[in-house]
Nucleic acid binder design. Sequence first.
DNA 1: CGAACTGAAGTAATCGATTTCTGGAGCCTA
DNA 2: TAGGCTCCAGAAATCGATTACTTCAGTTCG
Lengths: 333, 333
Amino acid sequence: MAKISDVAREAGVSVATVSRALNDHPNVNPEYADRVRAAAAKLGYRPNGIARSLRRQSSDVIALIISDVSNPFFTAITRGVEDVAQRSGYSVLLCNADEDSAKEATYLRVAEQEQVAGVILSPHMAGSDVSRLRGANIPLVVIDRPLNEPVDSVMVHSREGAESATNHLLDAGWTRPACITGPEEAATAQERLQGYLEAVRQHGNLDELFVHAPFRQHGGARAASELLDAEVAPDALFVANAQMTLGVLDELKRRGLRIGRDIGIITFDDAPWAPFISPPMSVVAQPAYDIGAQAAQLLMERIRGTAPAERRQLTLSTTLIVRESSQRSWGMR
Amino acid sequence: MAKISDVAREAGVSVATVSRALNDHPNVNPEYADRVRAAAAKLGYRPNGIARSLRRQSSDVIALIISDVSNPFFTAITRGVEDVAQRSGYSVLLCNADEDSAKEATYLRVAEQEQVAGVILSPHMAGSDVSRLRGANIPLVVIDRPLNEPVDSVMVHSREGAESATNHLLDAGWTRPACITGPEEAATAQERLQGYLEAVRQHGNLDELFVHAPFRQHGGARAASELLDAEVAPDALFVANAQMTLGVLDELKRRGLRIGRDIGIITFDDAPWAPFISPPMSVVAQPAYDIGAQAAQLLMERIRGTAPAERRQLTLSTTLIVRESSQRSWGMR
DNA sequence: CGAACTGAAGTAATCGATTTCTGGAGCCTA
DNA sequence: TAGGCTCCAGAAATCGATTACTTCAGTTCG
């Protein structure tokens, strides 16, 4: 690889001049600048990003650390992040923490070591340790789940979404709704459960049925199985995430339960497949793309230093999309 | 952030000794080594990865550049890559080229600039320019789609998969199968089309019906619409990717066509939702996880220098999974 | 006319690690 | 006792850029 000194030799100037010309600093003789550009093009010179980062103490990539690549919610966020980052000239490195604190820590370390310009993180737990980022002065924006630190964040009104989903189930005529939520340490799991509980309590003398499980397909299957094995099984399910819902569907199928007739179901996250299963799945949709876009926006402002000192906390709203899986009438005629 | 000279001062030794102690070189007085480790721990020292990479001319991260994060096929690959990379002590930076040559070029540049230890790429086109990686001496493994360069690769027998899918459609009693495939520049799109054509030709006097479209949901919808608007519409569809299939389903629904009765359908890729739509979707499953794992394995060997000089080309097989969407009987009783 | 200023180039310090080179201490051997 | 080894630590070079500082020529102005 050609380096800056090669370009300097080729153009017959000093390395400082090459650097200045290529970064279009003021006060460079245009004629020299042209010569430098020609030499650089001829040699196929590309500045070594590592050396540049070392000197500048920052690079033009940001890290996006998400909880689970295979969850469409997070990949939709990714799109939002990429679009606004790219517009500001930043590249996005995606890191899959895979709902695992150890992997998350690894990627936070990588982010620090690689001196990324900023990090967007969906923390595995509220207690995730981001102290090294602060130490390295790397801006951070947190998404989806809160952190026990005063940092910029973009969240969603999960509780309200869960409450309206549960109310919808009740309004539709189901009488014994249960909640399948994520692991106890996940704040979103807690909030969605809270929303469910609130709705159930408002309706009076209803049992509070819920189980915690991993935010994964197998977690949903296990949770559904547990609930349905109970002495008095629920007749409707509110599921806290789309991945789990696939597991739930599996379990319902295994047991031959017909959705809309034997059991009602509504889930968080409007996965791309939701309209196409049978019956079409009612959902609480999260504005995933916007979460990503807003988070990236906040991060860009922090990186540029145009952000106010105090933390900013955005909370976006969910949308209840009623299809058929939550309706009692379906399949009865 | 504490740096190596701080540790050296704290431990009362030179920076060279600190470096040697921390990288456990031979010939370091154990007592000094202990003192260095203690000092490093006390200061919370972590070597600056940038500086280290600059000197060592390589880092311990690899880049995985995929065509589309929102495609479950690629996220499954990601899992495979991560598992084996992690086992060898490498972190994976995921880059979403988004079926866009410009973005792909950007990420290839980033990979070069950041001096990653290696790259796994699913190239947008066979002509994608990877010359810079060769120049920078960064090992490359190509997945899913071939490249006009002699590099290690892990592919799938797409043609055979497509052929068996089409044959299955024909065997099931459909008489006018069509193929919805990806854009012409995508090799996988071509191969899947070839497989379809081969099957159709073997069966004699059948029309060859196919349309190219982007490997996306809207692409599938558009293609389906076009085919179904034809004078003599197909009675079965072989779709080249799961994303497109969602679009196809949308279009079929819009037109009120009943799968299994009015039209048969089979698709490439066993998406997680495939068993749950109605009727359950027959698919040609790709061994996505294995593709990733094998590619990472090849890459690790290249990085370690234990790989043979000549290129290695693996081609894995697909599996036909017959569910119900492809069967003629469904819905008739 | 000389001091002060400006523009544009080069020299060298710098970022933070790794690694080569250099040299001193201790030991062995002829 | 001199010469040759080995072990180990520090000094300094190195990776490839950016940038503070220096230098010099040409201009402006009192």
